[in-house]
Simulated scan of single mutants.
Amino acid sequence: MILASPSAAFPGSSPSSTGRGPPRSRELLKGSHRFNQLREALPGISPHTLTSRLRQFERHGIVTRTTYAEIPPRVEYALTPLGEGLLEVLEAMGTWAMAVPDPEPGVTA
């Protein structure tokens, strides 16, 4: 699983519009969601990237993918118990991000 940043931990855990703070799409961590619901909640993510991340999460047992034999086809994604265990981690990361001071202007790491 690729976790480039706290916001990459699970679709929908993007930081606030200021780039800091707790996830603004935390509701996505509750219940099942269709692909387009996840995509709409994550502005800027390409369908290819979202598909790739969801497949990685499925391989690692973080989400389940349920396909319904309907017309049109319906697919839903939901957290597994393992994925639900990430909620505490994401909360802790959000709390930590709020405690980190903004860098001084012009200062680079």
Rank of each mutant, 00 (worst) to 15 (best):
I71W: 15
D102C: 12
P15E: 02
P101V: 00
R20A: 14
S16G: 14
Q56G: 11
T66K: 07
T67W: 11
H33W: 07
A78L: 13
L42Y: 10
A99Q: 11
A78V: 10
L50H: 06
L90H: 11
H48N: 06
K30E: 12
A78I: 01
P22H: 09
P81R: 12
P103Q: 01
E88D: 15
A4Y: 14
L87N: 11
L42N: 14
S46V: 05
T67G: 08
I45F: 11
P11Y: 05
P6I: 10
L3R: 13
S17G: 15
R20Q: 08
T51I: 00
M1L: 13
V75Y: 01
L29M: 06
P72R: 07
R59C: 12
R20H: 01
P101M: 03
P101E: 03
E70R: 05
A109C: 08
V75A: 10
Q56W: 04
F57R: 10
L29C: 09
T64D: 00
G83K: 05
M1K: 15
V107S: 00
E84T: 15
P73A: 11
L29T: 09
L79I: 08
Q37F: 02
Q56E: 13
P6N: 01
Q56A: 14
L86Q: 11
F35Y: 02
Y68C: 12
K30H: 02
N36R: 00
R39L: 07
L28D: 03
P73T: 11
A8T: 09
L3N: 11
R55Y: 11
S14H: 13
L79Q: 03
E40N: 03
P72A: 13
A69Y: 15
G44E: 04
L3H: 12
P103R: 00
G19T: 03
T108M: 07
P23F: 07
E84M: 14
S46F: 02
T18S: 10
S14D: 00
A92S: 14
L38F: 06
P72G: 01
Y77T: 05
P103F: 08
S14W: 02
A69D: 14
T108N: 05
Q56V: 14
L79G: 04
M93E: 11
P11A: 03
V63Q: 07
H60Q: 15
R26L: 13
L29N: 04
R65P: 07
L28W: 00
E40T: 07
V63D: 01
N36S: 06
Y77H: 00
G12K: 00
L42S: 10
G106R: 05
E40Q: 10
P15W: 02
P22T: 09
F10V: 09
P72L: 04
T49Y: 06
R74T: 12
P105R: 09
H48Y: 05
